[in-house]
Amino acid sequence: MFSMICGFVTNIVLDPLMIFGIGPFPTMGIRGAAIATVLGQFVSLAVYIIIYFVRPMPVKIKMSYMVPDKLMIKRLYSVGIPATLNMALPSLLISALNGILAEFSEKYVLVLGVYYKLQTFIYLSANGIIQGIRPLVGYNYGAGEHKRVDKIFKTAMKLTVSIMILGTILAWVIPYQLIGLFTANPETIKIGVTALRYISCGFAVSAVSVTCSGALEGLGKGMPSLFISLSRYVVIIIPAAYILSRFIDANGVWAAFVVAEFVTAIYAYITYKKNTKIESK
C-alpha cells in the first residue's frame, strides 16, 4: 500500500507540472500526463525494490525461479483469465446500457456514468475485503479446515453487507448532494436521484454475489466465479434493462439492476455451496 501511495502521489504532483509546464518542466499537455503516469509507476517499483532489500522477506527473487512450470502456469491462468474477464464485464455492461439509455436522452447516459463513479467508492471498499479473504479461504480450504472457511465466508458476508447497507443509506439520505458533485443541471440531478434510489435497493443483496465470486476465486475455481459475473453483468441485467425500458421508460434500466442483483444472489449462493461442499456441523 505504501509503495502504491508513493506512485500515486508522484503522479498527482507531476500531472499539473508536466501538463501546464510549471517550473523547470516544458508544457506537454496530454503527453505530460502520460509521462507522469509512467514515472509514478517507476517510483512504485523503486519503493518495492528498496523494501525487498531493506526488510527481510521469506520469498526471494532468483533466476532459477524464472523457468516455466506448465502446471503452475495452468493453475495461474485458470484463475487469472476468468478474473480478467470479470474486470472487463462492467465495461461491456455500460456500453450496452448506454445504447438503451441513448434512446431516451443523453442526460440518462450522463447519469449512468455518474452512478458508476459513485458506486466505485462502495464496491471498492467491499472488494478490499474480498481480496483479503481470498488467501485465507485458499489456505484453510487446502488444509482441510472447512469449518474455518465457512466462518471466514460468513464474516466476509457480514462485513460486505454492512458496507452495502451504508451505501444504501447514503443513497437515500443525501442523493442530491452525491449527484450534485458531478453536475449542476437540476433536471440531470433529478434523474440521477431517481436512478440512485432505484439501484441502491439492490446494494445489500449484491454482497452475496460479490462475496461468493471472490471466495470461489480464492479456492482456485475461476470458471464458476466467471459464470456468476456473467449472470450479474450480462445474462440477466441487459435483457431485463431492454424489456423493462419498454414498459417504464428509462427507469426500467435502473430497475433492471435490482432484478439482476436478486437473481444473481440466489444463483451465486447455490454455485458457491455446490463448488465448495463445506460440511456444516
Rank of each mutant, 00 (worst) to 15 (best):
S3F: 09
I5L: 13
L14V: 10
L14D: 00
L17V: 06
I22D: 08
G23F: 14
M28W: 08
R31A: 15
T37Q: 02
T37A: 06
Q41F: 14
F42I: 15
Y48C: 12
I50G: 13
I51T: 14
Y52Q: 13
M57Q: 15
P58M: 14
P58W: 07
S64H: 11
S64L: 13
M66V: 12
M72G: 08
V79Y: 05
I81V: 10
L85H: 06
M87L: 11
S91W: 08
L93A: 07
S95V: 15
L97G: 01
L101A: 02
A102W: 14
E106C: 10
K107W: 11
L112M: 11
L118M: 12
F121N: 08
A126N: 04
I129T: 02
I130Q: 07
G132Q: 00
P135N: 03
E145N: 13
K147T: 12
R148S: 14
K151A: 15
M157A: 00
M157S: 00
K158W: 08
L159D: 10
I163Y: 05
A171N: 02
P175R: 00
G180Y: 00
F182Q: 01
T183F: 02
P186T: 05
V193E: 01
S200C: 08
A204Q: 06
S209Y: 03
S213H: 08
G214A: 07
G220Y: 06
G220L: 07
K221E: 11
P224G: 00
F227A: 11
S231C: 14
P239K: 08
I243M: 12
L244F: 05
S245F: 01
A250S: 13
V259Q: 04
V259L: 04
I266K: 08
A268M: 03
I270Y: 15
N275V: 03
T276M: 02
I278G: 02
